[in-house]
Write a protein that binds this DNA or RNA. Sequence first.
DNA 1: GCGGACTGCTTACCT
DNA 2: ACAGGTAAGCAGTCCGCG
Length: 892
Amino acid sequence: MPERVGLLKYMQYDSAQKKEEPLKKAEEAEAGLEEGDEEEEGGEEEVEVEFKGLPYFCPENYEPGSLLSVEYDGKNNLAFARLYDPKNKRLFCWYDNTNHHPYCYSDLDEEKLRSIKKLVTHKGFLGLEEVEKYDLLSDKPKKMTKILATDPLAIGGTSNSIREILPKAWEARIRYHDNFIFDKDLIPGLSYRIEKGNIVSTPFEIPSSLKKELELSLGKAPEFEDVLNEFLPLFLTPVPDIKRAALDIEVHSPIRDRIPDSSTAENQVICVSLVSNENENTIFLLKRKDVETGDKPKNFPKDAKIEYFENEAQMLTRVFKAMSDYPIIVTFNGDNFDLRYLYNRAIKLSIKHEEIPIVLTREFAYVSTSIHIDLYRFFHNRSIQVYAFSDRYKEETLDAVAKALLNVGKISLDKSIHELPLFDLAYYCWWDSYVTLRLTQFDDNLVMKLIILLMRISRLSMEDLTRQGVSSWIKNLFYYEHRLRNYLIPLPEDINRIKGIGETKAIIKDKKFRGAIVVEPEAGVHFDVAVLDFASLYPSIIKEYNLSYETVRCPHNECRTNIVPETNHWVCKKRKGITSIIIGFLRDIRIKWFKPKSKSSTLKEEERKWNSIIERALKVYLNASYGVFGNEPFPFYCLPVAESTAAIGRYAIQQAITKAKSLRMNILYGDTDSVFIKNPPEKAITELRNWTKQELRVDLETDKYFRFVVFSTRKKNYLGVFKDGTVDIKGLTGKKRNTPQFAQQAFRKMVETISRVQSVEDFERAKNEIQEIAKTCYNKIKNKEFSLEEFAFRVMLSKSLSSYYKTTPQHVKAARQLSKNGKELKPGDIISFVKVRGKDGVRPVELASKEEIDTDKYKEYLKSTFDQILDSLGISFDRIVGITKLESWMSG
DNA sequence: GCGGACTGCTTACCT
DNA sequence: ACAGGTAAGCAGTCCGCG
């Protein structure tokens, strides 16, 4: 079985690494690393390097495949890569044979460094090498000395690491495996082959016709030439469908409402399922004396293979073996639950360390024979949620995500897990794995393709990409771009010292700088409203106004006159900023190429979809590109950059509004990058567009056109109806997730009525209907005709119960009542509660009864929900429900 | 001791 | 661990009135 060679070696690596885990933990503690500090993997312990001399561990008849990860082998002191072989559908490894070593830089010369005893006698010290780097902060070349070390921990991660010895160390906090990726120009997610022991990228030729077409679309931009060649292979290389299985476990849990504790793993694992994208459905079931087998549920998968076990340890051992058949293991919350539980349970059952292919760190769980993707972490990522999936799921549970994206939910149970007949248990467990797998498959493997694409752009391993946030993705991309150009990666403290702090005052307390403008809306109903907006405003500004950490407040005197409005910041006129180039390029190629291609009717459906995935991936980077500069943990943090971006944004919208008014247009509303204009003449729009393009260097586009818009006096609140009757609702209470269902229903009915309105005259009819809706709902509250569920507010617990000490919001009050009843609650849980008469004023739905409902509170709530719309229609809620001022005082 | 004015906290939203 | 701006409801505090 030659194709298993790589894997066997790999297994060996991991069991070795695992033993060093406690050592590594201790060292971290000793070094006093702050949370979130870069972890260096591997142990410090010196070991013989048995793999040296053997160039790679790759099956003989493999096929070149996708690079999925680069990691560090602490036992053998080598970086290694894991790749997917599409022919054998297995992972194989390549070990570094290039003599690459961990390093960092110092600005001291070799002689001075040699005089530092602690450095040259450090047991990890390897040698020095003088190099020249380009320092963007001073805009000058800089002589640096590269300090090479035997292992990552010698550079950083312990209290006597080299970076602690030096007065100042550059690039010493980049994790070694990332360094390796940059230096070897490896791109995770692209295809590589092993040639005479070396890892070689598959060459990518850009068809010349395509290149011409691209140049035509993007326009002539010499600074983009190299970037285009660099990025095109990432966008255009197809993504293989990688063999994978989803895993889910069920645990015996006698106490209701208690989630089994994965760190103690006290209870039996009673079922495990693996569902693969090659139609394998394997269910591992523990036979228990007291539990009946039952009948197979209707939709039980016909081809499912059930393996029964008398002994739990044997079952787990079998599961571990089965897992190794899959290059990728997918879970939903496996980092914190399934894999953690399996590992700790296996230890508890005295299974040997080296027979458990799971490696735990404080936060994560890895599978040594596979790549582990925890979909919970991926879907939890705000950027993915908002930009890739347009906020379609609002909670990050398997049930909520699956309902939103697949239109299927979890199976609801009428008894506890441990009481289920075996077949019901098997089905329940299988279903969760099946749904988890499908989350990676729907829409032509959208999620897997998105992950691979994001890996390519960020230069991150699959396991890192799916666990880190957009800030990390951008950080890694920028690191790579610096390395590629031989730029010295600046120290955050140097950027801070040179660039200083913000100059503008935020409107919100405790914020660091002023943000966008929101124009006061013109309350009322307005027919024929055009919405114009700046296409990708902030990225456009970063590109057009040359914003970057080195170009804002640059070192040149002659640039000091180039001032950002409302600030004293100036911008470089001499060189293009690196951020400006990269963000500018990504913006242009998204807007001018991938966005139109994703809608192009001349392309095949499949191609359109791929272009749309690229377009969405780029959007994620672009939308975060300004925010990261105002976020301190970002290593290129530079307040003047974020502040200048926002300031120019304010300038742009103000100028555009002034110009529009001078063209006699009626501005109804605007927010950040948009303006709502009442019935604008086509000619005036064209003139405004030309003017903004010319004078402000940003594109103003017609985004949408409303038949009419209803504004109240509130900002970020409106209801618009398009020509075709579709409705666009922003910010209104009736649409919020935490609004009780009864109010959402009534609100929906009101919206339906409004959406049927064609003309000014129709409104009168609509007003009557709306009054009826409000009245009906009001009476149903009065008579308590809604169920407790319909009365319930659903509010998310954003932190642990004990950390609410400043105030006790209502959902926390309700949660504490539940908690007293023995229910375990954690951050992210949704609390359903109703308002009741009596001292607390609230009660969780589970404990409430209808009698205690506080109808007055609900009447008030209905009023405020409806008033957001009624205000602008000139209707009084109180009049509708037929109460006079006096009556409303007396009711109760 | 009470109630209104005020501030602060929290969540959910918009761009 | 991307940013700031806005709405809404409630919790908690302060202060003046009687």
